[in-house]
Simulated scan of single mutants.
Amino acid sequence: MKVLLGISGASGAAYGVRTLSLLLASGAELHVLVTKTAWGILASEVWDGKLPGGMVARRKGLARLSSSARPFRLYAEDDFGIPFASGSNAPDAMIVAPCSMGTLGRIAHGVSSSVLTRCADVALKERKPLVLVARETPLSVIHLENMLTLARAGAHVLPACPGFYHRPETVSGLVDFVVTRALSCIGVDAGILPRWGEGKEE
């Protein structure tokens, strides 16, 4: 499966990093887009303020975080020449994790002003699974209407709202809940958390 992962500029960089890790573990052919703002958030939330310089260093940094030796392709955020910017070469699925409200709003209204929003536009028009891990609270009426527009267009709008029935003991457990739900929307079973009703004694 050819998957495009977008990491946009919202707090919650851990969702993007964990999605990357689990997609690689699943054997997906992974392609990654990170926005300029998202790089800054990755630096502050994941890399202790130290952002690797240059695309090669940043790809290596993400690779180390993924704990996987499998390769993936990292694209520059301003490279409109990437394959997935055209409907003739759409990915099998696309996930944006985390997805800022600005990114979500532009996707909802077809404003393809960046490579990430153009690729999401392509996923929608080609009827490919598009999962948006929305990161904002509280939500305004504008946010909710944009989400409704996207849901009607066929996108999976998945707010980063972890459940607690798996009894998480760490932040990683909360992140895993959200990411595994996002992956299930594109047919990938990460196999790391029990499903509701599983594992109970009869």
Rank of each mutant, 00 (worst) to 15 (best):
S86T: 15
W47V: 00
R181D: 09
A151C: 12
H156M: 13
R152F: 07
V171C: 06
A120G: 11
H31V: 14
W47Y: 14
P159E: 07
I95V: 15
K125G: 07
V133A: 04
R58C: 05
P138A: 03
A25S: 15
T19M: 14
P52R: 08
C119R: 06
D79W: 08
C161P: 02
G16W: 11
A85P: 04
Y165N: 11
V56S: 10
V46R: 13
T19D: 10
I95A: 08
D78H: 10
V96I: 15
R181Y: 05
I186E: 03
D121A: 13
L5E: 08
G102P: 06
E29N: 13
S44M: 08
S66E: 06
Y15T: 10
G27L: 15
A13V: 11
G191K: 09
A38W: 02
F72N: 02
A134Q: 00
A69W: 03
G27Y: 06
E145H: 14
E198D: 15
V171W: 09
T19K: 05
A43S: 12
V175G: 13
K50W: 05
L51R: 14
R59L: 02
P168T: 11
K60V: 02
V32M: 07
P194V: 03
E136H: 02
P162M: 10
E201C: 01
V178G: 00
S140I: 03
V188E: 01
A76E: 15
R18G: 15
P168M: 07
R167C: 04
V96E: 10
R70M: 12
L158V: 13
I82S: 10
